[in-house]
Amino acid sequence: MLKKVVLAGGTGFVGRYFEQHFRNLGYEVMIISRQTPHIGWEDKQGIKEAIDHSDMLINLAGKTVNCRYNEKSRKEILESRTDTTEVLGLAVEQCENPPSLWINSSTATIYRHAEDQPMTEGKGEIGSGFSVDVAKAWERSFFGFQLPKTRQIALRIAIVLGDGGVMTPYRNLVKFGLGGHQGSGNQKFSWIHIEDLFNIVLFLRKNEGLEGVFNCSAPNPVTNRELMAQLRRAMNKKVGLPSPAPMLAMGAFFMGTETELILKSRWVMPERLIKEGYPFTFNHLDEALGQILKSSMG
């Protein structure tokens, strides 16, 4: 019988990659999404039936944070994470044969702005502000469920690099000669290659003693200055104009987003994954960028 995996919010950049790679491994993939033809979030019975007898439940649902944080957006960003997590938890509780593993997305943004020291699962300091409040509420709603037959793992995911997603705007900046550093350029950029993110899920599936919170980031974060320099190098662009913070604020306003996404220093270390022996495929940013640019041209 085919093993079954349920991807909640499985139609985004990460979800599409996961779907394809799980299918390649011979899994039956069920997707819960607002988009047809998938199982809708209001279809509680359909959700329960999908999750029952599944091998793994992975929740990637959540409205993009790449928008202006007005009141309406803030409400949608929060509820699209906590409400979906609640729906899934209630469904798991009703399953006769619940999945042995439920992985819920969280975000590396839960930690404070850090230019002085790396944030690990054990010693990381939780930050403050809207994005952090969302992350805390998200993890609270997830770990609020006591599920004796299901391991629960929250992935505090750094910026995911792959063919699509955040790489698109960064490549456009470089292409149009604006690929210099942003703000001071000293803010840390913690990242993870999408292939490692997928392999981490398989690693956590296999290691049945693991649960709780895991930082999902490559072991070698870079500064924003290094990120832009490596991108220019990978794309053969000699010149990149830097963007001082006031200019970014204006640009972000016109692009309908927030500068926090670029200016917050995210210095996150995957201490637990390293300790448990997860072998990263992409340890260094230049390897990741090289692979992504090659595959998007191929």
Score class of each variant (00 low, 15 high):
A114E: 11
S106I: 07
R74D: 08
L90S: 08
H38E: 04
A50W: 09
I51Y: 01
G62L: 03
T64S: 15
E71W: 12
H53Q: 15
K48L: 15
E49T: 13
E86G: 09
M56V: 09
N59Q: 08
S54C: 11
V92N: 07
T64V: 00
H38C: 06
T64M: 09
C95G: 07
K48S: 14
W41Q: 01
V92S: 07
S80F: 05
E79P: 06
K123A: 14
E76W: 08
I47F: 08
T84R: 06
S80P: 07
E115P: 06
H113Q: 13
A108G: 14
S73H: 12
D116I: 10
T109L: 15
E93Y: 03
D52T: 04
Q45P: 06
R81G: 04
K72M: 12
Y111T: 11
P37W: 11
K123V: 10
G40A: 15
G46L: 03
G62A: 04
A114V: 06
T120K: 00
V87W: 04
G46R: 03
T120N: 02
N70E: 02
A91G: 01
S106W: 04
K63Q: 15
R68V: 12
E71P: 06
L60R: 03
G89H: 01
I103E: 04
I77P: 10
A108E: 05
G46C: 05
P118G: 01
D116F: 03
P99A: 05
R74F: 10
S80Y: 06
A50Q: 08
M119D: 06
N104T: 03
P98M: 06
A108M: 02
H53I: 04
C95V: 00
V92E: 10
G122I: 12
Q35H: 15
K63P: 12
D52C: 01
N104S: 14
L57R: 00
V65M: 10
I39C: 04
T109H: 10
Q45Y: 07
K63T: 14
G62R: 01
T36A: 15
Y111D: 00
T82H: 02
Y69F: 15
